[in-house]
Amino acid sequence: MAELIDVLLFAFLLATAFYVLLSRDLLAVVMVAGIYSLLSAGMFLVMDAADVAFTEAAVGAGVSTLLLLIALTATGRWEKPAGHRVVPLLVVLATGATLVYGTLDLPPIGKPDNPPQVHVAPHYLERSGEEIGIPNVVTSVLASYRGFDTLGEVVVVFTAGLGVFLLIGGPRRRRGGEK
């Protein structure tokens, strides 16, 4: 049953990915990209990663779709036909091939003696109940054991907002034009 769900999700993922690649209707592309994120969230859920699935659904399918829709109202709905596509294709193929080559060295998914399973994870799973005292181990890892990383992530989010604000926010451009 689980394999069937996996196959179905992968098939739909591929279909949506190809649609995003080939369509010139950017409004439809944004919608389908949201569906792509929702399908990814489904796959994370099948792998029992509820927190990751939740983030993917909220960020990928939710807020980034909304932001892209707003951006589309500024840029227009239809993609302009592009000219030379050979160099980008080569770059993408080379990057993809490198990534696939990199996966060859990865240990199989779910093997009990994989490096992530034997390093600090056993300590978190066995001791977080008494050390942190909350049931959700993911939250105790993110917020306490890995608190520095999460602080960094929050600063990254703030910096991204600050960057956009400095680029397109603040005082109107017209002041410069009147000089």
Binding site: D51, A53, F54, T55, G62, N136, T139, S140
Partner: peptide, 17 residues
Amino acid sequence: GEYGPGGGFQAGVIMAS
């Protein structure tokens, strides 16, 4: 977020949406 999936990041995104 301590009991179920979720936390500040997801909650912030949902509130923003």
